[in-house]
Write a protein that binds this DNA or RNA. Structure first.
Lengths: 351, 351
DNA sequence: ACAGCGAACGAGAGCGTTTTCATGGACGAC
DNA sequence: GTCGTCCATGAAAACGCTCTCGTTCGCTGT
């Protein structure tokens, strides 16, 4: 047995760390070649004789060798890895964006490391950036760093960054759905059905997307010269929609509600049902996002569809252009179109 | 001046690559100390004079230095990173488990790299494992590798693995909710309300959790000596629940339905509403998972709550025990308790 | 005042890989 | 038959960092 004799004499001194994973050198000894022949095989180089290659391959699988990417990364200066910072990503929009990023990254031969911050405050995000850049990443995607400004973050110089839906626009390239237009279209749809005005249950005060949706709602009302009723503040959750909905249910003038997202809209419908108000006969409700369940709640929810997959793809492409070509894209701000999906939760007012 | 002559002649030739990130040596030159001292400061060692430390710190921030973790990882032999393989993680259960894992990992000073496989077939998962272990991870979490057996995966020898809810039990340590008990309790709840029997809309054929929920449903019916009606096959989506629901709505004998998950249940309710059948007066519906929206759909859904956070924590703990202490835990299979949450979608039959 | 000692810092090796350059051997051309 | 050429392979350096071991100070105790 060659491995026996190889590790028998002085090599056994080195082989002592039998616990750790085999290195290229181990494979080389086993196959009776030199270390960089193993390297050549590992990298799929052409100039190695088939017989040699087979020997090496055999040694690899016998030893269960897999290349140490730390060393490889050290050599190459790249980790083939991008970092994603997100906030509460079990929310639908976030997780679908992340999913798209992961998929796009995979087809570009990158992996994704994920950090989920408790809340999108500066210290949290800044912490996450530090941790992430200590773990080696080639680029960074920040999703909805809503209440954070770039100055707050200690982003290492030269680290490519893209952001989604945040206030970084102008400092880092950004991609986001056309939220203004989406809101406007939802409200116009409701006004077009004959509603005198449209109430709004908004997202949290600190959120950029929330503000955009408010702006779109207000713009549509202004354009139609309708009064803008006071805003209900929510926090994206169904629960907050439910609370707002209880007030709306009491207000018999309210015949149409546009909600900052689908969860909130579903919460509003919950309160309306509970109060015995019919949807859409008494009150029309529209949401935003088009989550998977929007089509299956009762009644099926009219909403604005965001193309999360496309957002994820665009984010990754902008990031890769920075990483691979060194392009500077600070001023780029892409907007991906949205689509109004009319279902049964909206209808002309009964009166 | 040794540093003077060192950097004066040939060292300046080295500095040519001003493009790339500054290294420890650059900082050392700038601060007029050795690379060693920079390392000490970087690691927070105590035996460095405050004045020296300040000089180094200043040099670091002037140069925008951040440590190259490839080199660090190479030296330490660890990336402080774990890999997570999941399938369609924008589904609620998956993403909440991942979220918990990420959080637990963070507090253990680990980061998480994520791979989302298109479908849980062997080639996909196997691919993912390969890619991930090329990326140097210290451990691996596999979430719901439903139709995969361990032999299919080329998991590098010695790589710690934990799995959630899969058929790996017995080969790798596993953590999962007590799905059998959860299903049983949901069905018993419905029978206890006076329903003669309970219909079931199941998950896909290939899924382990789906099978467990079927088993629990059947066990409860058997124990109460009730007939088990034919199963409706779903695929976890609301849409599939809707399709099943259309059949159930036509069957006036059906007064109670237990669904494999909440999305499916919501789809069933959609079909029932559409057919004019009242919930729960005509038909009671129960789900599984307790997703965030379960409380806000109409009527609020009775369901079995899984503690995803705890599952994530336990998974990570089991993984870390393998990584840090080298424990072998193949036979460990933890079950985390579930909780029946009764809301308004279930009630005694009207008759 | 001098040996002894500990603190502060520097020099060098090594982690596992890829890259560059050197070397040996086989083969074809003359 | 000999030389040149190319192909397969090996040796050594380098990537940036941390660890181990020395070395140089400045200080205290007698």
């Amino acid at each position: 047995m060659d491995d026996g004799e190889a590790s028998g004499g002085e090599a056994s001194g080195k082989r002592t760390r039998s616990k750790s994973k085999p290195s290229m050198f181990d494979v080389a000894v086993r196959a009776g070649v030199s270390a960089q022949t193993v390297s050549r095989v590992s990298m799929g180089a052409t100039n190695v004789r088939p017989a040699t290659r087979d020997k090496v391959l055999a040694a690899m699988s016998e030893l269960g060798y897999s290349p140490n990417s730390a060393a490889r990364a050290l050599r190459y200066g790249t980790f083939q890895t991008i970092g994603v910072i997100t906030h509460k990503f079990s929310r639908t929009g976030e997780s679908r964006t992340v999913e798209a990023i992961v998929e796009a990254a995979r087809s570009a031969q990158y992996t994704v490391t994920l950090v989920d911050v408790e809340s999108p405050v500066s210290t949290e995000v800044s912490d996450a950036v530090t941790r992430l850049s200590n773990q080696s990443i080639d680029g960074l995607v920040i999703i909805r760093a809503e209440s954070v400004t770039p100055a707050m973050l200690s982003i290492p110089a030269g680290l490519p960054v893209v952001v989604s839906d945040s206030r970084f626009v102008g400092h880092h390239p950004a991609v986001g759905a056309d939220q203004l237009e989406g809101s406007r279209r939802a409200v116009e749809h409701l006004l077009g059905l004959g509603h005198r005005t449209v109430h709004h249950v908004a997202g949290p005060d600190s959120s950029g997307p929330s503000q955009l949706r408010i702006d779109g709602w207000r713009a549509a009302l202004d354009q139609a010269e309708r009064p803008a009723p006071p805003i209900f503040r929510g926090d994206w959750t169904g629960r907050s929609g439910y609370e707002a909905g209880k007030h709306i249910a009491r207000d018999t003038d309210a015949t149409a509600v546009f909600c900052a997202n689908d969860e909130t809209a579903i919460g509003v419908m919950h309160a309306l049902h509970e109060a015995g108000r019919r949807i859409p006969a008494d009150v029309s409700v529209a949401g935003f996002d088009d989550i998977a369940l929007a089509a299956d709640v009762w009644p099926p929810l009219t909403t604005v569809r965001q193309d999360f997959a496309q957002i994820g793809e665009r984010l990754l492409e902008l990031l890769l252009r920075q990483i691979r070509n060194g392009e500077r894209l600070e001023d780029v701000h892409e907007t991906v179109p949205v689509e109004l999906v009319v279902r049964e939760s909206t209808a002309p007012p009964a009166s």
